[in-house]
């Protein structure tokens, strides 16, 4: 069964300032013992997530809500498995597809067709299975002969079409999205919406970080209100949005 469980998950983020990136300073600190240690601790640590306990079950479409720096992106990366928590336990059952950056794995000098394969391979597909989906993706992007050209020559909207087409052809059980789907012309946006609708129904869990009330209400049934790395509230979307609005205006 598809589910995500987090128990007291914390992420401490070291911020390496100029000095602590340097091998020389670190070695000197080790050699000189405790004296320099006090003032050499330029290692700032940010508590990006602070004991998050959370259960997301099948069918949940969760919106991550919160001010900038609340830990939304960090939480998404923890769910994607790229950041391993510094403390706590995380259990993710299901195939995860992160859609954070539309340009991920794209090679500007390669043609559209090559990039479709490249991007798919980064998402964990084999080149062979990507070739099988090529026609479907090409049809979706409606880029036609442009697919034979290097994507360096694409406009950002065209790039988005390509990235979106590839990203949604992998049918994941858990879909993680950052707010990046909002570029593109009205026609494409409508098309993307339809595609996303079938995509989202196919995946069992959706976690979406967004600042747009509209998008959040349309796609999500639950809200997770994060503040300074802590869960302020987790529950039905309308309640959470109301609480968030209240905290903003308070």
């Amino acid at each position: 069964m598809t589910a995500i469980h987090l128990r007291d998950v914390s992420v401490d983020f070291p911020v390496y300032q100029g000095g602590s990136r340097s091998l020389k300073k670190t070695l000197m600190r080790a050699g000189a013992g405790g004296r320099i240690l006090a003032d050499a601790s330029q290692r700032l640590v940010v508590h990006a997530l602070d004991s998050i306990t959370l259960d997301i079950e099948e069918g949940d479409r969760v919106a991550l809500i919160g001010p900038n720096g609340a830990g939304k992106t960090t939480l998404l990366r923890v769910l994607a498995g790229t950041y391993e928590p510094t403390a706590g336990l995380i259990e993710v059952d299901g195939h995860v597809a992160p859609l954070f950056d539309s340009a991920l794995g794209l090679n500007p000098d390669a043609t559209g067709y090559e990039n479709i394969i490249l991007r798919g391979v980064y998402m964990g597909m084999s080149p062979k299975s990507m070739s099988g989906r090529m026609e479907e993706i090409a049809a979706f992007t409606e880029l036609g002969d442009y697919l034979r050209m290097p994507i360096r020559s694409y406009s950002s909207g065209m790039l988005m079409r390509l990235a979106f087409g590839v990203a949604t052809c992998v049918h994941p059980e858990i879909l993680l999205m950052d707010e990046w789907l909002l570029a593109g012309d009205a026609y494409f946006l409508e098309k993307a919406r339809a595609r996303l609708a079938s995509f989202v129904t196919g995946s069992k869990i959706l976690v979406l970080a967004s600042h747009s009330d509209l998008i959040v209400r349309e796609w999500c049934n639950k809200g997770l209100f994060l503040e300074r790395g802590q869960v302020r509230m987790f529950g039905p979307i309308d309640d959470v949005l109301a609480a968030y609005a209240e905290s903003v205006h308070a």
Partner: peptide
């Protein structure tokens, strides 16, 4: 912490690998 505290949570059995 409104909705989340009231539910009793199952403890995760899995130990860290």
């Amino acid at each position: 912490m409104i909705a989340s505290e009231s539910i009793e949570r199952p403890t995760l059995q899995r130990r860290k690998t």
